[in-house]
Amino acid sequence: MIIDIKYFGMLAEITGRSNEKFECSNTKVSELKKNLINRYPGLNNVNFTIAQNQEIVNENCKVTGEEVAIFPPFSGG
């Protein structure tokens, strides 16, 4: 399954892109997270939350969504 990943804020800077296609089959969110950190080690140093199909998912969920959004908290005000 090809998923479409969107990166927000500083995550787009760490990965060098605002979105990309990612191949993953029968994967849990925690595994997706591991794969992403392997690919972009800088992600290991930031706090981020994952949503699929516009809904926040916990790490035990299966990746079923075609649209995955990965976003960090912002502190600025």
């Binding site: 930031v46 706090n47 600025g76 005000g77």
Partner: peptide
């Protein structure tokens, strides 16, 4: 519920 813990300082800076 969205972000359980603070991000480590130095990795996210202010304006």
């Amino acid at each position: 519920c969205l972000f359980p813990y603070p991000t480590q300082k130095g990795l996210v800076s202010n304006c």
